[in-house]
Each structure stands twice: as C-alpha cells, then as structure tokens.
Amino acid sequence: MINIVLEPFQYDFMLRALFVSSMVGIICPILGAYVVIRGMGFMGDAMAHAVMPGIVIALILGLSPFLGSVPMAIVVAVSVGYLIHKKDVSVDTAVGVMFAGLFSLGLVLMSLVGGLAISIEDILLGQILGVSRVDMLISFILTVLVLVALVTFHKQLIFSGFDPVGSVVAGLNAGALNYMFLILLGISIVVTLHVVGVVLVVGLLITPAAASQMVMRRFTRAMLLGIVFGLFSTVVGLYLSYYFDLPSGPVMTLISFAIFLCCAVYEKFFSQTQTSHLM
C-alpha cells in the first residue's frame, strides 16, 4: 500500500505536480465558496478563457506562462469590475463578449506564431506534468498571497456580499473589495489553469464549494469542508491519472463531480439542510 502511495513521487515532475495540485485543491474551494454564493460561476469560466492571450504572449517571449497570465488576469479582473460598476450593459453580456473576444485573440495569436512549446490541448486541458520549478514557486507565492488576502478580508467580503448597501453605509469600501476579490479570483484561476486547463477551471472552482455547501449549513464551515473535497479531488485525481494513464485535469474534475453527486444524494435523503438555492 505504501508503495502505491509513494511510487509516483520517485519522479520530480510528479512531486511538482502534487505540490501545485494541492495548492489548487486549497485555493479553489475557498474562492469558489464566494463564487457560488454570489452566482459568479460564469464569470470564473469567462476569466479563465480571457487570460489566453497572456499565456500565448508569454510563450512567444519564451517566458513562464505565469508571467503572461497573471498580468492578463489582473487586467481582465479590473475590466470586469469596471463593467459591473458601470452597469451600462448587463454583466453577463459584457463578460461574455470580452471572454469570447480575448479567447479568440489568444487562439489567433497562437495560430499566427506557431511552433510554441505547448499545444492548444495543453492550454485547454492543462499540463500538470509539465510544471517547472519556477512555476511551482510562482504557484506557491500566488497561493499564499491569495490566502493571506482572503483571511484578512474574510469578514469584509462576507459583509459586502451578504448586505451590499448596509456594508457601504457601515463604511466599507465595497468597490475596492469587489476589485480585490476579482483580482484574487483571476490569480487563482491562473494557478488552476496549469492543473486542469482553461476548459475545466470552473469545475474545480465551483464544484467542491457547491458540494460542501449542500451538506454543511454554515458558510465558513462549508468553506473548510470544500478544502477537504478540493484536496481529495486533485490529489486522488493525480494518482488515478498516473496509474491508469488518464488525463489528470478531467479525472480531477470527475472526482469533484462524483463528490457533488454524493453530497446531493446525502442532502436529499439524510440532511435537514435547506440548500435548494444551489441546484
């Protein structure tokens, strides 16, 4: 049994993959808890697609994809925040238009340049086994940054999400909090991209969080249970992909989906928790 657990990690690339997967398993459910409750799942998906030009430009320049995607994520987050604030058009429409445009720009850039170090499939479905030491270090720093910000502003984020007007009257700067949250979301999405790719980011972002909110009544406790679900999904997914030679991103997402189904069954038949808003 111990051999089964340890065998994959005789390879450096698997150790790096485990490390980054664990970061993602922790960070996604925490951000996801807010994303689910604020009904921002589509925005998370859109932001994942919209950082595509940043990734491609970094690759063209021969840099770590992080060095392109992080600034791009911040630009996208600020733009989305501005669109939400302006309210001239519906948020879904504005975000949808931006996501399609930037994703297409990334694809066209990739096609024009050609011969990049990674393929379109790697970007769409993740390339966890190709994570370098630099990527690992950047993932760690970004994750710590996001966690420190979230822990520090936990109550402010809850207040502004729960009672937007009351929190502003109480003196909170709701605009700054919203921008901060979107930037943290963008950074977390960038870290997650390496693990599951553009297409499946939203799966890890919202599925463990939604599952935990089904079975745990209180918000903060649900967030902690979400971390357990997230870590289980990414780490077990990594093992299964190693032993059965499966793509790691989809396996991780499938495991979190299975957890969600189990929670749905539990909630339906065994729990008193009222969570109809999640379905």
Partner: peptide, 27 residues
C-alpha cells in the same frame, strides 16, 4: 442601515451571531 429583505443575499448561510458580529467589521 437595515436593508429591505430583497437587498440581502440570503444564500450566505450566516447565524444570528455571525450577522451581528459583522457590525464590528470596519474597513
């Protein structure tokens, strides 16, 4: 300010204690 109920996001599963505790949150 005590909001009208339509302006509150009731999906936040907060206890009475947690809601009142928000009154101590400043910037």
């Amino acid at each position: 300010y005590i909001p009208q109920r339509e302006n509150v996001n009731w999906r936040f599963s907060l206890t009475a204690l947690e809601v009142v505790d928000l009154g101590l949150v400043k910037n």
